[in-house]
């Protein structure tokens, strides 16, 4: 299948101290052979062409070895497939028309901030 339509709910946050929120994107023309990261590449290319800020996400080997692609997909680290990194998760495991929630991993470097932003504390 090469024309899946997806609704992507993506957590966007400008930085460690900024307030974040979910932003929803509609993406058409997704091929079910794409990996999850390639699907995000396609969305980013679209956003860049619209002069909007692309979604920043970590990735390196894209071969399932390094584990850098740290996304929480539909509530699961690296997505719903067992023993599979996000780069090896292919879109054939999602349904046409599905809404997919994408968030970063919780970490000290980028804490998930749903309340109002606050000033950095002096360390």
């Amino acid at each position: 299948m090469d024309n899946m339509k997806l609704k992507l709910k993506v957590w966007r946050q400008g930085g460690k101290y900024a307030k974040g929120q979910f932003v929803t994107y509609d993406l058409d023309g997704v091929n079910d052979h794409m990996s999850f990261l390639e699907m995000l590449d396609v969305l980013n290319e679209k956003l860049i062409n619209l002069k909007e800020d692309p979604i920043a996400f970590e990735h390196d080997c894209r071969e399932g070895i390094c584990g850098t692609c740290s996304l929480v997909i539909n509530g699961y680290a690296h997505g719903p497939m067992q023993q599979t990194t996000a780069c090896q998760l292919h879109m054939r495991h999602f349904r046409d028309g599905e809404t997919i929630t994408i968030e970063p991993w919780r970490s000290r470097a980028l804490s998930h901030r749903e309340g109002p932003g606050r000033q950095p504390r002096c360390l």
Binding site: N31, H33, M34, S35, D41, V42, R62, E63
Partner: peptide, 11 residues
């Protein structure tokens, strides 16, 4: 190769 969107080919 399966498509233009591919970021790399897997060895």
């Amino acid at each position: 190769v399966s498509g233009e969107y591919q970021s790399k080919l897997t060895l």
